[in-house]
Structures are given as C-alpha cells and as structure tokens.
Design a binder for these strands. Structure first.
Lengths: 256, 256
DNA sequence: TCCCGATGAAATGGATCCAGTATTGAAGTT
DNA sequence: AACTTCAATACTGGATCCATTTCATCGGGA
C-alpha cells in the first residue's frame, strides 16, 4: 500500500501517488468525505472501531490528518470518540431513527409547502425526470432483478434527486445542510435492506412521488406538504421495524 | 503564561496547572466548548482569525489539541478553514440569518404542537417560571436599567429556558441538538444588540410567551404551533434589519 | 475450577519538528 | 511617484516521537 509520506513525495511513487498539489483542497476534508461515504454506504458498518494507524496506511497518509478527520466526524455525530480508546462508528438506536424521520418529515413538509410557490419550470422538469427514473427502477426491480446492486444505485439516486430538488426549490440553502446532517445519522444500506425486501412498498412510494409531483405542479403547497410528511412517516415506521428485526443480532464484529 | 506541556506536568506549575487528570473528559472537547462559547457570546467576533499558536499558549496547551478543536468547529460550521491560511470565525450573512430563523420557526412550531400533548405538569411549571423570569427581566430593564449586562444575562437565560422546555417536552431529543446547531450559527450578542434597543419589542415577546404558555396549558397544540412560528418570524425580521444596519461597517479587525 | 492480579502489547493523545506556502515589507526600476 | 520583484517572516499542515492508558493474556492462589 502506498504510504505517500513526505519522504516519498516524489512524483513516481507508483500506486496512486496522490496529485499532491498542496492546496488543491484540504486533505483532511477529502478524508472526511471518503470515510463518511464508506460509513453511509455501510461498507464500514456501525460499531466498527476506526483505528488511526490502520486508516492512515490504508489511505496513504500519516495518522495526523486521519485524527483531524475523525474529529470532524465526531462533531457531526457520525462517530463517537471514547477517551484513550478511539473512534467508533455510531449505531443509531431505533429511537434515533424515529427522531430522525420525524424531523425529516417536518422539514420535508415545510420544503414542499415553500417549494410550491417558488419552484421553477426547470426544477419541475428535474423532479419529473427523477420521478420517472424512480418508477423505472422499481419496475425493473419487479420484472427481472437483473442486477440488484445497479438497480439499488439508480433507485437511490432517483430518490435522492427527487427530494433534493424539492429542498432546493424551497429556497432555503441551509435546509439542505440540515437534512443532509439528518441523513448522515442513518446509514443508507439500512434503507435499502428495509425497502429492498418489500416491492409493494416501493410501488407505493413511486405512487406517492407522483402525487407529490402533481401537487407541486399545481402549486398546491398544502397538499404537497401533507403528502411529504406522511411519506416520511411511513418510511420511519418501516425503518424502525427493520432495525428492530436486525437489531436482535449482537454488535458487529471488529474491523481488521 | 502557563505552558503546561508534558514536561512540566508536575503538580506545582504555578499558574493554573490544569487538573491534568488524563481522561477527566477529552481535552479537545473542552477546548471546543470554550471556543464555541467565546464565539457565541461575541467575545471573539466574526471574521477573527484563530491563530493556533496564539490559542495554544493562551489556553496552556500545545497546538495539537487546538488544531483538532478547530476541525470540530469547522465541521459544525462555526469557523471556516482556508487551506494554508488558518481558521476564521464565520460571519453569517443576512441570508444565513433568515434561513436559520425560518427553520427555527418550523422546528419550534413542530415542537409546540407535539409538546401540547406530551408536556408534563413539571415542565409546565418550569415554563411558567421561565415566563415570569422573562417578564421580570423586561420590566426591570424598562424601569431603571440598573445593570444592562446582568439583565441581559437573566433575559437570555429565561428565554433559553422557555424554548428549551418546549423542545424537551416535544419528546424528540434530536430536536434539541438540531436547534442548538442552528443557534450556533448566529452569535448571541447579535440577538442582544437587536433586542436591547427595542424595549417595546421585548414587551411584545413577553406577551407572546404568555400566550404560548397559555395555549400549551390548555393543550391547544395548533395555536401553540402557530404562535411559535410567528414568534420566530418576527425575531427573524428584526435580526435581519439589525444585521443590515451594522453590516455597513467593514469586517472586524484582526485578533491580536 | 474459578477468580484475581500482574505483565506486556497496542493504541491513543500530546508535543515537537520540519517542509511548504502565503503575506508583508523593502528595494529597485520604469 | 507608482508598480514590480524579491527576500524575510509568520503560520499552517504533515510527520514523527514519546508518555500514558487500556485491554488481553498469563500465572498464581483460594
């Protein structure tokens, strides 16, 4: 593995020498991004201890930037740092998940109501495309599950785009940050585990997306808000049920 | 200045040797708390460059924990880090403030509606006491402004307590975190600058608090929610106006 | 056989060191 | 006189070093 330390910062370090342009963008920030992504996707499961030395060698840096990245993840609630023990990926409790989705619903509903008056035709287009993509993914999944992983990716992408557009159309940029911070608290793969098992649910979601799109197109903010709140509420209930089921098993094995 | 490094960790280091109990609670976390507080109160104004060396000597630690603390503050949005330049306290724009208060209103309203059904008699008591304390502070201010700073502290305490109880009574622990993270984005002293100049506004706030308390006592969630949303909306408008006024001046002078 | 204490390995947390970069001020030129 | 260039300075960012703590394994005793 690379070990791109200061000593071998010369250009020909073979394995991904890291562009090394100094201020291309903070190294720490990119580490945060990588780690957050791995945790969100479930590649690094909840409960895992994040060993500084291990991550450092794996990512080809020294422990220092890793330490700072872990601090950021702590501040954001993704990991918990125990004194003299290290950083561990937090496992959200069912209560946490309920609370996340409760607020998610509130904020989505608000975004929907606000968006009904502010949404542009371009955004409506994107919303419509996302809705179509979502439905297509669901159909594809039901027909012949060609490649679950690929469908999952597309489904997730479409879903994210759909809700992102609504939030964006609300005109409140901060809202996007807050919602994202809520999302970070629940690993994505959980969502997929919960929904993947229930195709009827996915179809219902698709129908709800259509109804929301319709309400926004008509400029009916009240309906859009109500639909979005219920949309989130149902997601919450499903998630909680799923987590309860898989929560029986003990905490995941240690990393490495 | 103390400079409590590892070398002079012996007990008799004179000036505030820092209890030095190793895991009493993460050193970095306490630094974060100190810095966040100083920034929130306005003791360290927006725009200030936070010099690592300077803070380190001032706080009696080395640069290392300071660096990690700054990373946490970055993750939380309190400071921005510019590559190879350092950390600077963020200055919220009027747009930021509007957005903060918009979401604040949404979340407070939700908390109020939820709280109406869940609030305990003990919490109602606390709410009532906070309301009284708030009104008393306002009256005191209007009569003979004996000690503005003291009154300001009491006013702020009462206001915080009032809204905290409502959020707590909503039953959603995460809500408290989210609202706090919103609060962090607007320095407290701004609020005071805005409100301190307008006693009539404070009296109106007191009246609104009373109305909210009344609605919650009656279990009228809808009214409580509406009142809270408008409460936040008015605060927003006032804040924005104030920031616009003082925003004319250039960015504050550098620290040190 | 089970429990308790000691020893050793592993990992964190803090400090120091060093390289690279941005800024500031001065000198020199057009 | 103003603008450009260059050098000195200050500060950040990454690496390494070392003390301290925690955990696990092992051995002894009840």
């Amino acid at each position: 593995m690379a070990r791109a330390t200061a000593q071998d910062a010369d250009p020909q370090t073979g394995t991904e020498p890291r562009p090394r342009g100094r201020g291309d963008r903070d190294l720490v920030d990119s580490l945060v991004e990588v780690l957050q992504e791995r945790i969100s996707t479930g590649e690094i499961p909840a409960g895992t201890w994040l060993r500084q030395e291990h991550l450092a060698t794996e990512l080809g840096v020294s422990r220092m930037p890793v330490r700072e990245a872990l601090r950021q993840l702590q501040a954001v609630g993704t990991v918990e740092m125990i004194a003299n023990r290290g950083a561990r990926v937090r496992l959200p409790s069912t209560r946490d998940i309920m609370e996340v989705y409760e607020l998610h619903g509130v904020l989505q509903a608000h975004a929907g109501t606000a968006a009904a008056e502010l949404i542009t035709s371009g955004q409506l287009d994107r919303l419509s495309r996302a809705e179509a993509m979502f439905r297509q993914a669901v159909d594809e999944l039901r027909a012949a599950d060609s490649d679950p992983a690929a469908v999952q990716r597309r489904w997730h992408e479409a879903n994210t785009e759909f809700h992102s557009v609504i939030i964006e159309a609300s005109g409140n940029k901060l809202l996007a940050d807050v919602v994202e911070s809520l999302h970070r608290k629940v690993p994505r793969n959980l969502t997929w585990i919960a929904l993947g098992s229930d195709v009827r649910r996915l179809e219902r979601d698709a129908a709800e997306h259509a109804a929301i799109l319709d309400a926004l197109t008509r400029g009916d903010g009240a309906t859009a808000g109500t639909l979005l709140r219920e949309h989130a509420k149902r997601a919450s209930e499903l998630l909680v049920r799923t987590v309860d089921e898989i929560g029986q098993e003990a905490t995941p094995a240690r990393r490495r």
